Amino acid sequence: MNQITVYTTNTCPYCTMLKNFLNTQNLAYKEVNVQLDQTAANKLVETTGQLGVPQTEINGQWVLGFDPETIMNLVK
C-alpha cells in the first residue's frame, strides 16, 4: 500500500490538478492544507526547504509540483 500525502493550499490550481490525477489513478492519499495548518507548513519547509505547493510525499520520496510521471514512477 502506498503512503501518499499531498500538501496543498486553498488557492493552488496545480494542487487541484494533482488531486484529480491521483483520483483518476485510484491512488488513495491524505491531504494536508498548509494554509490552514501552520505547524504542517513549518514542518514542510524544514523537511524539503520548499514552501511551494503542491508537494507530495510518496513512500518517503518527495515530488515538487504537478509531476505525474515522477509520481507514477514512485508508486508501487
Rank of each mutant, 00 (worst) to 15 (best):
A28C: 03
T5M: 08
G52S: 15
C12N: 13
L44W: 02
Q38R: 11
Q35E: 15
D67G: 07
N23Q: 15
L74E: 02
T56Q: 02
Y7T: 04
T70H: 06
G52M: 13
T39R: 11
Y7D: 04
N33R: 08
I58H: 07
V63D: 00
M72W: 02
L51Q: 14
K43G: 00
K43H: 10
L74D: 05
L64V: 14
T16C: 05
L44D: 01
N73L: 09
V53F: 10
Q55Y: 08
V34Q: 08
W62N: 02
A41C: 08
K19L: 10
N42A: 12
V6C: 09
Q38N: 11
E31P: 05
M72E: 00
P54W: 08
Q61K: 15
N20I: 07
T5Y: 03
A28Y: 02
Q3T: 14
Q50V: 14
N42Q: 11
L51S: 15
G65P: 06
W62M: 07
Q25E: 13
V53D: 09
P54L: 07
M72T: 03
Q35S: 13
P68I: 09
L74S: 06
C12R: 10
V6L: 10
Q55V: 13
K43M: 12
N23C: 03
M17G: 00
Y29G: 06
N20P: 03
L64F: 14
L22T: 05
Q38E: 14
N59Q: 07
Q3F: 01
L51W: 11
V34G: 08
W62L: 04
V75L: 03
N23G: 02
T70F: 00
C12G: 09
T11K: 04
T24K: 11
L27H: 05
Q50A: 09
Y29I: 03
K19A: 14
T47P: 00
T47M: 04
T16A: 13
K19Y: 10
L18I: 00
I71L: 13
L44F: 03
L18N: 10
T8P: 04
Q25M: 12
V6Q: 06
A41Y: 11
D37H: 11
T47V: 06
L64M: 11
G65Q: 08
L51E: 07
I58W: 01
K43F: 00
I4A: 10
G60S: 06
Q38D: 13
N26G: 09
V32A: 06
L51F: 12
T48A: 02
E31K: 09
M17I: 01
C15A: 14
L22K: 09
L27C: 11
C15L: 12
V45Q: 08
P13E: 09
L22M: 00
Q25S: 01
V75R: 06
V63L: 07
G49C: 04
M72Y: 02
D37N: 15
A40K: 12
V34N: 07
P68E: 10
G52T: 15
N33D: 15
E31L: 07
E57I: 11
M17P: 00
V45A: 07
Y14P: 03
Q38P: 02
N73C: 03
V63T: 05
T9M: 12
M1R: 14
I71E: 03
I4E: 05
D37S: 07
N2G: 05
